[in-house]
Simulated assay, not measured.
Amino acid sequence: MPAAPVLSGPQYLREGLKLVLSPGLRLFVLLPLTVNLILFATLIGFAVQQFGGWVDAFMPSLPSWLSFLEYVLWPLFVVLVLLMVFFSFTLLANIIAAPFNGFLAEKVEVVVRGGDHFPPFSWAELMAMVPRTLGREARKLAYFLPRAVALLILSFIPVVNLLAAPLWLLFGVWMMAVQYIDYPADNNKMSWQDMLAWLREKRWQSLSFGGITYAALLIPLVNVFIMPAAVAGATVFWVRERGEGAVTKAQP
């Protein structure tokens, strides 16, 4: 019996984790994993130093007679800053690791579709993917920035900014689905607009996958290791949700 759409996301991420831990694919995981480890260590150190100042910047100024509300609002704005910082750092990590993630998605798809063997590693194939994958990341950035700026402006408007944290969370969940499922979609030459339209058709499955990925990436240290699993899980999502034989594997 097939899993319900809201339950399929955890299933795909779990399958992705199993795949990246398999002996034949470990080599393709080490490259993005190393990049993410270095980047996250650097960015976490920076965030720890600046975090208090960022929370103070977003906290609204209240008159003295409402000062008691600061104790109520402070946790909300801590969560808001955490969501913004986490998502910005994750986006940057994915931009830097994009060629490695695209390469990993390509190899995972071969395995998921029933390849007889694990494909050999090729630096030439990896380098050939760099211009295309970075171009696609630029397209994601163009999609992300106007919406993030709108949410950022909303975060500074008193009273209205109480909605900012849940909206950032929902947007982050959607972007996690977009970010990772785009790797196999791009490998299969699906256009950006067609990919978004397909994800909207699979809205609940997409939000389920994005939500479980978002939650896993919020866990310190675990988030570094979950990124390759998310790439593999998104590839499983792509193959299964598109249907067997629905997609022709793109040639390198």
Rank of each mutant, 00 (worst) to 15 (best):
A4T: 07
G9Q: 08
P10G: 03
Y12L: 09
L13E: 00
E15S: 08
K18F: 06
L19W: 05
V20S: 08
V20G: 03
L21P: 00
P23K: 06
R26I: 10
F28H: 13
F28D: 15
L30D: 06
L30M: 15
L31A: 15
L33V: 07
L37W: 07
I38H: 04
L39G: 00
L39D: 00
A41R: 10
I44R: 13
G45E: 05
Q50P: 02
V55E: 11
V55A: 11
P60S: 07
L62E: 10
P63R: 15
P63T: 07
L66E: 07
L66K: 10
L66M: 15
L69N: 10
F77R: 03
L80R: 00
L80K: 05
L83P: 04
L83H: 01
T90N: 15
A93T: 14
I95S: 03
I96E: 13
F103G: 02
L104A: 03
E106Q: 14
K107F: 09
E109R: 10
V110Y: 13
V112N: 09
G115Q: 12
D116F: 04
F121L: 07
F121T: 11
F121R: 03
S122T: 07
L126K: 07
R136Y: 13
K140L: 15
K140R: 14
Y143P: 09
L145I: 12
P146A: 02
A148D: 03
V149I: 15
L151Y: 00
I153A: 15
L154P: 01
S155W: 02
V160Q: 00
A165G: 01
A165P: 13
P166Q: 02
L169M: 11
F171Y: 10
F171D: 06
V173T: 06
V173C: 13
V178Y: 01
Q179N: 05
D182C: 08
Y183A: 02
M190F: 10
Q193I: 08
R200W: 09
R200D: 02
K202C: 04
W204S: 13
F209M: 09
F209P: 01
L218G: 11
I219A: 10
I219H: 10
L221N: 06
V222N: 04
N223L: 06
F225I: 05
M227W: 04
M227Q: 15
V231E: 09
G233H: 04
A234M: 11
V236Y: 05
F237C: 08
F237T: 00
W238H: 13
R240I: 11
G243V: 08
G243W: 09
E244F: 12
E244N: 14
G245I: 08
